[in-house]
Structure formats: structure tokens, C-alpha cells
Simulated assay, not measured.
Amino acid sequence: MPCPRPRVTRGGIAYMPTAYKKWKTDFIRCIPYTAKVGLTGPVRVSIDASWALPKSYTKNEREAALCSQKYPAADNDNIAKAVLDAMTQGGVWVDDKQVVTLTVTKRYALDEGITVKVTH
């Protein structure tokens, strides 16, 4: 899930949407225990984000999406922010400013999900 903008109440209090907070919690739970080592120094991160095909797509649109001629509307920077923040909170590294190389790929696929590769 791409990182959304914070919402603001009428009283001026900022908060993140519930769906995003739930996604982030679920993502942190999926981080393997062996990856929670608090890496120090520079790291390289590669993110592959796959979205399920929209049910409203026609056969031609589905084929185009699977051939990478159509792509999800989410911004790569918002995908990266959500993943990096969750991995920082999950203890993979000390701070996401350690990421010196970042690659984000977004696409439609038959199975949705996120694959993250970290190189230290």
C-alpha cells in the first residue's frame, strides 16, 4: 500500500488512515526474525510491488497490464516510503537514511504482493 498523506481533524490533529496503519503492522509481522538485525552502514534496497488486476478490466486491458503496457497508479515514492518506514520500525536497519540505492518496480500480476531485497 502506498503511503498516503496524513489526514487532519477539524481540531488540527494529524493522523494516518486506519487502513495504512493496519497494512504497516501486517507488513512488519511478515519481516523474518532473522532480518531484524538493526543493520548499520549503507544498504541497497530493491522493491517489487505487484497489484492484482482490476476486475473491471476487459480482456484486452488485462493482457496489456500483464505485458507491462498498463501500470498501477500508485507513485513509486509513496510505495518506497511505506516499505522503508515499516522496515525501519520493524528493526531491519537503524534509519532509512542508510539506504544509498533504491529501486522500485510496480506492476500488475496474477498474484499481488511486495518483495523486498536488502543488500548490506
Rank of each mutant, 00 (worst) to 15 (best):
P17G: 09
V94T: 13
P32A: 09
Y57K: 05
T88Y: 01
W93T: 05
L53M: 06
T105R: 11
A14W: 08
L53E: 05
I47N: 02
K55I: 08
G11V: 04
V118Y: 05
A64R: 02
V104H: 01
T119L: 12
D95C: 10
I28L: 08
E63S: 13
K22A: 15
V118A: 10
P32I: 04
K70D: 00
R7E: 15
M1G: 07
W51K: 01
T9N: 11
N60M: 05
G41D: 07
D96R: 15
G12K: 06
L110S: 11
V37R: 11
P6T: 10
P17E: 07
K81G: 01
V116P: 03
E61D: 13
I47A: 06
C67T: 12
A80V: 04
V8I: 14
T88G: 07
D48E: 14
T9D: 11
R107Y: 03
A52S: 13
T119N: 12
D111N: 13
V83R: 00
R10D: 13
G38A: 11
N78P: 00
M87R: 06
D85W: 02
T101K: 13
Y15V: 05
Q89W: 02
Y33N: 12
G12L: 10
Q69G: 03
V8N: 07
A52Q: 08
E61Q: 15
G12F: 04
L39E: 10
G12S: 11
D75S: 11
Y57I: 05
A52T: 06
A49P: 00
D111E: 11
D77A: 07
D95S: 13
A74M: 04
C3T: 02
K21S: 15
V94A: 10
A86S: 14
V37I: 15
T101Q: 13
E63V: 10
T105I: 12
C67E: 15
N76H: 04
N78L: 07
K21C: 14
P17Y: 09
E61T: 02
R62V: 08
K70H: 04
E63Y: 04
R5A: 15
W23R: 02
